[in-house]
């Protein structure tokens, strides 16, 4: 595992990059894949930060992905050039989130701007986070998140953009993060009561935190607006080097009536990151 690369670091503007670049990719010369596309697939930009966005976008389009996500609006023209969208627009930070009233002005301003930008392009989602507990009670955090999201949900509805709060594990990668259980997130969705506020169910994070993936997807299908992937343990390729059976999980997602996007969010460990991405896309293309 590339231990020094973390999403937190990336979002914070880290300059660390993956060792493998496009030059070493045997995949880049191969003809385009034909995906069935019943699961609409996306990929998180931060996992391939060493590959220039323009060539990465070209490769993603040839793999058959429909989106590169967590890309700032300034870079969207590059995505559009390759026929891609940004299925999840970034907004505020992971650790300083909506569970504290004092963060609301900053977070809501960023969310509002992200919704504006996404709406202008007809892109579907904007991300948000609970923030860390830092000693705050979960019930109090839930109440504060509800207060914040109710202020922005009307705007999201008007702009036809869905705000998604991400579920992350607090055991390993995001110590002390509050929105770390599906039940807590689903309670927030219920309280907000807007069709434009849902959860980003990260399969990797939730397997680390709570397991029971398929049953959880079935139970909370109505609350989930987006998915992320990665292998457990290690957060690397989603193939037979890890403990989850991804085709079975994708089938459960499809069977739940899901019409959104699944974002590949693993850190490629193999020599050719694009070949890993293409293989993951095929594995999920059920």
């Amino acid at each position: 595992m590339t231990a020094d690369i973390t999403r937190r670091g990336f979002l914070a503007g880290s300059t660390a990059g993956l060792a493998a670049g496009l030059a070493g990719s045997a995949w880049a010369d191969e003809p385009a894949l034909k995906l069935k596309g019943r699961i609409r697939q996306s990929v998180c930009r931060w996992c391939y930060s060493s590959i220039p966005l323009d060539s990465f976008a070209a490769s993603c389009a040839r793999i058959g992905l429909q989106s590169i996500e967590l890309v700032e609006p300034a870079d969207w023209p590059i995505l559009k050039k390759h026929g891609l969208i940004c299925a999840m627009t970034p907004s505020h930070s992971i650790t300083k989130g909506l569970n504290r009233i004092e963060n609301h002005p900053e977070c809501l301003a960023k969310i509002r701007a992200a919704i504006e930008a996404a709406s202008a392009e007809n892109f579907p989602n904007v991300i948000c986070f609970s923030g860390n507990r830092a000693g705050l009670d979960d019930a109090e955090g839930l109440k504060n998140c509800e207060i914040a999201i109710k202020q922005i949900a009307g705007f999201a509805e008007e702009k036809k953009v869905t705000l998604c709060m991400e579920l992350l594990n607090s055991k390993r990668n995001h110590k002390d993060y509050m929105c770390d259980r599906t039940g807590w997130g689903a309670e927030l969705v219920k309280r907000v009561g807007s069709p434009r506020f849902k959860l980003l169910y990260d399969i990797y994070h939730m397997q680390v935190q709570e397991g029971d993936v398929i049953a959880t997807i079935r139970e909370y299908a109505d609350c989930i607006g987006h998915y992320h992937t990665a292998g457990v343990p290690g957060r690397n390729e989603i193939d037979d080097t890890q403990e989850l059976n991804y085709p079975a999980i994708m089938k459960a997602i499809l069977d739940s009536g899901f019409g959104g996007y699944v974002g590949q969010e693993f850190i490629p460990r193999q020599k050719d990151p694009l070949a890993s991405l293409a293989k993951a896309a095929e594995l999920c293309d059920i």
Partner: peptide, 17 residues
């Protein structure tokens, strides 16, 4: 890794069963 081999791997895993 070339495309042919990763497709073979991917397919085998997908149709497992």
């Amino acid at each position: 890794m070339n495309r042919r081999s990763f497709i073979a791997v991917g397919t085998a895993a997908t149709v497992l069963g």
